[in-house]
Design a protein around this nucleic acid. Structure first.
Lengths: 199, 199
DNA sequence: GTCTATAGGCCGATAGAC
DNA sequence: GTCTATCGGCCTATAGAC
């Protein structure tokens, strides 16, 4: 630990999170991460053995961030569907506001799946037994509940995925984007409820 | 032209489209593209001068594919909003079914924006003057019309972006995914209409 | 733990024969 | 046009001094 309480290992992880999430694994350079962390390139290998191991550490932290914030809401047996929707929208939009390129990073690396990193996580089981899926089935048993879940998540996540388009083509600046997604915290539960009630 | 009517140049472009859209620019290897095209690595440079120039060719074709299919629908002065929604959903889902990783590829590269490739396209002007934006404003002038456009596009595109999650975690196989998105062709216009009518 | 110096491999690009 | 052979550079990883 140094005087401001951040160990060298943490400095490297923070720098790696920034570089990896912005550029993706393939375009990231360990030299660049080391530079951002204020250390020598050799020290990075001393702590993490390889670029790939450092990447897995970062991806673990980011996947955990998503899971531990969202899955408890999905599986909660004691909240109504309406309340779950409000919670998901609120928690997710706040989370993504602080980590805007998290979705693009995680999904992009899942698609490439170079390291078989995601092969063991039991998402299917967790989701299949979750309370929210049963609640969605009750609304309309003829429609695959994943349609509704997809709609809800897409309305939350997609603006952050499309952010490069919005800002790069000057449709919004960063401040306007933040206002835009904050408005959606109120709007999405309304839209979603109408969808469900009217089937 | 060889006996099946595909020139060497086209063979390289097709191989490049496959490799670039699957792996992204940074992780793609010119040797791998040449191999897939059935030619020597040197020949790739003979036709396209560099990896970067080949990439720009591919990106141009992909961006064009999106624009020439969607923008005419957006700007059409002679169709109702309801009809536009039906057309967008239908055209877009068909287009993405044939090019499933197009959205992730295009948005991912826009975010990295290594070559300033997207700086000159006048999307803001085209969209700002488009008929669909005015039609959306008429429905509810108090809500930014981009909210509705975002919802519509997100419901079409997001499943394709999330496809790596669905298939990698065995929530669906490829056939089930195709059934899933085809169902959405009928469902999305219904959901969207309800949204708009009820504000 | 942290540094400098460098090994070793991969990749894009080119020279030059045919 | 198409190939083989190879250059030169960049990047990760390691050896070794302090």
């Amino acid at each position: 630990m140094n005087e401001i309480g951040i160990s060298t290992e943490e400095k490297i992880i923070f720098a790696a999170e920034k570089v990896f999430t912005e550029k993706g694994y393939a375009a990231s350079r360990t030299r660049n991460i080391a530079e951002k962390a204020g250390i020598n390139a050799a020290l990075l290998n001393y702590y993490f053995r390889s670029k790939e191991k450092l990447f897995q550490k970062v991806m673990n932290r980011k996947a955990l961030l998503l899971c531990e914030n969202l899955l408890p809401i999905f599986t909660d047996e004691n909240t109504s569907l309406k309340r779950k929707v409000e919670q998901i929208v609120d928690v997710y939009i706040d989370l993504l506001s602080e980590n805007p390129n998290l979705p693009l990073f995680v999904i992009g690396e899942i698609q490439k799946n170079d390291f078989g990193f995601f092969n063991s996580f039991p998402l299917k089981e967790i989701l299949g037994n979750s309370n929210i899926i049963n609640q969605l089935k009750e609304i309309d048993s003829k429609i695959n509940p994943l349609h509704f879940l997809m709609n809800l998540l897409s309305m939350c996540v997609f603006p952050f995925i499309a952010k490069p388009i919005l800002t790069n083509f000057s449709l919004m600046n960063d401040t306007e984007f933040q206002t835009f997604v904050n408005q959606r915290k109120q709007l999405i539960p309304k839209w979603f409820e109408v969808n469900m009630v009217s089937k």
